[in-house]
Design a protein around this nucleic acid. Structure first.
Lengths: 200, 200, 200, 200
DNA sequence: GGGTAATCGAGACGGTACGTCTTGTCTTAGG
DNA sequence: CCTAAGACAAGACGTACCGTCTCGATTACCC
């Protein structure tokens, strides 16, 4: 038995926009958790069925709304100085997460994704992977040009760079702060261990 | 009007245990999200009121259950070799998160905490802060003994170490894997940048 | 503003038949109440609009289907013996109601008509009145020929004859049974009261 | 597997009354068909679950409301004159059906019962059978005392008396009219056929 | 050791949202 | 212009849980 899929050609752009707008508006007003599909439909002036027809879950709606409003490209700058480029990129990521609606909404999506494999897949494909890939590529270029050590796993480097950001986004304690991101990148670059004294 | 607080002395240990056991059991069977207070009460053979009397939320119950079963101390080993100690410690953390029930439950708690400040505070106090503090102290000793560079913010180091773990715990893509943790610690120690050639 | 009436000349006979057939089929399978316009359209391979264009309600569709398949005339036999004619006629009515699909469908229509004046009017015109009129006429002839008492309201007689049938059709308890109809007619003819003893 | 039945001892009389009142009020205002369980719950200030817990269907609620407000006994008067007693009784039935809220509500219940066997059983037990039984008993006494012919099936007599009432209650055409009921009873008593001329 | 007060299991309660279903209208493409 | 198809706004359906409440029936403490 196959589920009858709706025909995307007949989709009402008007309703789609209304739903995404309403979702953003409600999340802003009452937060992700207290925003319901029921309320989104009412706020958007749309039948609930229209939402269920085109999105599998509330998280998916918010995901769409998120990628709609900030179609922020995953592209990395490449000025030839990888550390400067990473500082700039990570700082702008944190500014987005800490300074706009994006942060709280994204936190909600990540929370939802813990128990929603379909949403997890969407987030991976649409958010995580593109950025990982772009970052890895930038790092590879830096590695080739001798800015980075050889023999290190670049995906691990991505995690070393993004990990602390997610840590502060999702765990209570020190909330995200764009001003400290540069130092974090520098720390990752320099490493923890004491440099051996240069021989004179 | 003061809220009448229940008297802890009269609390039924039997019920408390039954609730925590039932919570763990249900979360294991159907996952955090699909576990309800209703079901915990039924499974534990306990009145719902008994749960609401002693815990503020489902997340708080799971938190208690979690800290009950793994009263894993936050203590850090100190063998004098900080890199080895960190490798051992981080590896055992990842083993707990990836190899036991703890991981999925903890993911659920972190998801819930995104919209529950009270739970967030509990997690910070009972889970995050003790470990951060213990880690910072171990790092400080290492810094004093010259194993670590001076002038680096130790809390940031903690985030650099734990960040990638939470990244892989909470984001879809590469799930946690205890075998790679050591390399990650090494990477953080060595840093990304190419070491300048030793002068001859 | 005038409602634009559809042009009957352009009506698709093919669709009309498909709808009526599907309606009968679905009512037979799942009963009147659980048959929906949605399902009729799907089963008939017809757009919903096509149904809404030509029929005002589900009840009207079933009404059409009913009068289509059993175009049973309302004509009364007239053999000169009114009691025998009524016995025959009422028995055949009950046989139709109790022995075919007609009964359950008709019950559904009568149920629907309680809250649908338009359907009520249709049923009155197409089902009830023709039969009442035919019955009254037959009774009038009987009255003239001296088989029936004079001075009795013939419409009331019709109700006395049909009433018990509808009673058993629509109320739970004794369901309709064609074998008892003759006795019922006899009872109506003879009346309840004890005949005064014939004088000797 | 047994369905867990709610405990009637814990039932809230307050809610029960509020539901029945609201049901009557809404049916009066918008009719049986357009009254929804949703609206009854809202109007009564009651959770929907409370309705679903205690009643199997909307029809059952209305049934309760009906038998609540008119706990009209099924008793028959017995003055010794059966025809007069029946005239009085049938007239008061018709007055109830034609002159109060009872009529429209009862029509709705009978409509619903056509596709709801459980409701049908309730109506049979609570409305139909008691009245049939009471009527049969009164008729039996009349039969014994010689007011009625012997050898006639008394249940059929009940149908002969009530049938025309339900006919006019449920079919479109001549609506119920209390003033004509007496004549109808007389007609049933006298029968249709011309009395044989008394011999001189 | 008897009174009394709080906790306990149980589960009904007023609510809210869920995800589904159907209604009757509207839109699109094809004949 | 009718048709098949089906998206749409609306809103009721019956279910699941929420957090509060009201019951008796145990406790466990105080006098």
């Amino acid at each position: 038995v196959t589920v009858k899929a709706p025909d995307p050609a007949r989709r009402s752009e008007r309703s789609r926009q209304a739903v995404l707008d309403a979702a953003i508006r409600l999340c802003r007003d009452r937060g992700y958790e207290r925003t319901t599909i029921e309320a989104i439909a009412a706020e958007a002036g749309v039948g609930k069925q229209t939402i269920y027809r085109w999105w599998p879950s509330k998280g998916a709606v918010i995901m769409d709304a998120l990628t709609e409003e900030s179609a922020a490209s995953a592209d990395f700058p490449d000025t030839g100085n990888v550390r400067a480029d990473l500082r700039r990129q990570m700082t702008s990521v944190v500014e987005l997460l800490a300074g706009t609606d994006f942060g709280p909404l994204y936190r909600g999506v990540i929370a939802a994704l813990q128990s929603d494999p379909e949403l997890a897949a969407t987030v991976r494909e649409r958010i995580v992977e593109p950025r990982v890939t772009a970052c890895v590529e930038r790092l590879r270029r830096a590695q080739r040009s001798g800015e980075l050590r050889r023999g290190i796993d670049l995906e691990s480097v991505v995690e070393l760079l993004y990990g602390p950001i997610y840590y502060r986004l999702l765990l209570p304690g020190r909330p995200l702060d764009p001003t400290g991101v540069g130092a974090m990148v520098d720390l990752a670059f320099a490493g923890l261990k004491r440099s051996p004294p240069r021989r004179r």
